[in-house]
Design a protein around this nucleic acid. Sequence first.
DNA 1: GCCAACGTTGGC
DNA 2: GCCAACGTTGGC
Length: 154
Amino acid sequence: MNWWVVKSEPDVFSVDDLEKSPDKTTYWDGVRNYQARNFLRDTMKTGDKVLFYHSNSDPMGVAGWCEVVKEGYPDSSAFDPESHYFDASSTPDNPVWIMVDIKLVEKFPRLVTLQEIKENPTLKDMTLIKRGNRLSVFPVKEEEFNEILRLARQ
DNA sequence: GCCAACGTTGGC
DNA sequence: GCCAACGTTGGC
C-alpha cells in the first residue's frame, strides 16, 4: 500500500468534476514527466490512497481523496493528434506515457489549505511543500495522509 | 503578472 | 556529453 498526491488545476478538472464523473471515476491522463510516469507505471497499485490537490487556484489545498481502481495502462491521449497531450513518440505498440484510473472516495467537508499544511509540524517534510516541487504525482507518508484526513474533519 | 525552479531541446 | 536557451509549473 502506498499513499500519493495528485495535483490538478480546478479550472481544468476539480474534485467536483470528479464527483460528477460516472462512478466518480476518471482516468488520470496527460502526465508528461518521466519521474511521475514511473510512479504511475511502477509503483501505484490498486487500492492505493490518493490525495486530490487543487493547484493554481484560490485557495490552494487538498480537496478530497481517491483510490486507485485501475493500475497503469497506456495513456491514449498521447495517440490522439487532436489532443493537447498528443505525443508522436508514443505509439500503441510502444507507449511512452501511462495513466491510471482513480475513484473519488470522499470530497472533504472543507479544503485543507496549502497554508495550514505549511504550518503543521506533522507535515513539515511533505513533498508538496518542498521548494521547487513540480511533480504532478508523488508519494506521501501514511502519517502525512492521515494527518490531512484528520485536518479535513476539524 | 512575476519569477524561481527545473525539465527539455538542440547546437556544438 | 555539455550547457545555454527555452518552455512549463505553480506559488505569490
